[in-house]
Design a protein around this nucleic acid. Structure first.
Lengths: 189, 189
DNA sequence: GTTCCCATGTAACCCGTTACATGATTTT
DNA sequence: AAAATCATGTAACGGGTTACATGGGAAC
């Protein structure tokens, strides 16, 4: 009864409504939770094998013609119980946040002004694009009662992209000063 | 000239001002970039070894009494050039965002109402605590001209914690409805 | 009729995390 | 005097990512 990683429970959860093959499951991931929990296809297969060994899933080979044969997995009662127990546990210690961008910003006084400009402009552009994308998703889910929970995750992303834009507005002038203040070109002295 | 992970450049950057041992560097990480780029101590040592092998660092053994001997590393010209080239590169494809919380929220319709309540309350509490902590850091750095860049990273966190709180305000009622709508207890039929 | 995409999966590498080791100092 | 912390580091496990493999359709 050892603790599995988030990925395992995420896949179990996605399999709850209907059985799927690894390939189908992987593309399902891409259309649902990949925004906040990406899972590589190869990892899906590994997880499926493990979850089957734990009797959380039962797999069945399906022979196909024209396309390769596949193995479809369905959640067992034990698997359903496991994912529901995990969901009911309010512990989210495994939260993380990593940002390469912030590492670069932290060292902004070592970035030439024009490069910093490119960096910030790119960041703003991505945030705008992403905000638009997420707003569209949230709008498309509005009013569909069964999809309120997915919609809430899209709104989370939207709020955070707006926060990024507001942050950029606040710190851009400050960072430009930091970068401009630095002497570049004299590597020795 | 292969691409190194973010961690390598982050450590190089922290070593730019002054040479340090792995232990010192690790605690330096804890007081600076750990908020958005945590690095385990054991990984610091591995990176130091690699960066020395690449001639980005030069290490020197220092004998001490009372405390264990140590090895202090200083950045070589090649190392400085490498980290500055990395900083000047506006590519941040290695960005990631993962949230176990959002995975649970995505499956909110499988969480009993009282558990969902605990989950959201805990999330709100952590966000408030974290916002206060980051606001204090940002305030303590205000006006110190050499520390504008670190302050910008703290402000990023602050904006995002506030975004989380605003998001919670928006989606809490919706999620409670989702959870309350679900039938619990009937596991078979 | 090559070239790209679909549908399935396997193999290998490497970063990140957790656990282990150790002896001196400070705290309780 | 026992327990916690400091100041160094090493070892091992495992999740996540990237690259490899394959053979049939679809597109150009």
């Amino acid at each position: 009864m050892d603790r599995l990683p988030t990925t395992s429970y995420a896949l179990l959860g996605l399999l709850l409504p209907s059985p799927m093959s690894g390939y189908e499951l992987s593309s399902r991931v891409g259309k649902s939770i990949a925004n906040f929990w990406p899972i590589a296809r190869s990892q899906v297969y590994r997880e499926l094998a493990r979850l089957e060994a734990l009797d959380y899933l039962r797999g069945a080979d399906v022979v196909q013609d024209r396309v390769p044969d596949k193995r479809v997995y369905e959640v067992t009662p034990a698997g359903k119980a496991a994912v529901e127990a995990w969901l009911a546990d309010p512990d989210v210690r495994r939260e993380r946040f990593r940002s390469t961008l912030l590492v670069k910003i932290f060292f902004a006084d070592h970035i030439p002004p024009d490069r910093l400009d490119t960096l910030l402009k790119g960041c703003r552009q991505r945030a705008e694009r992403e905000a638009a994308r997420l707003a569209a998703i949230a709008a498309s889910l509005e009013g569909k009662p069964g999809l309120d929970a997915p919609r809430a995750t899209a709104l989370h992303g939207l709020h955070h992209m707006r926060a990024t834009l507001a942050w950029l507005d606040e710190v851009e002038p400050m960072l430009r000063r930091v970068s401009a203040r630095q002497p570049f070109g004299g590597e020795g002295r």
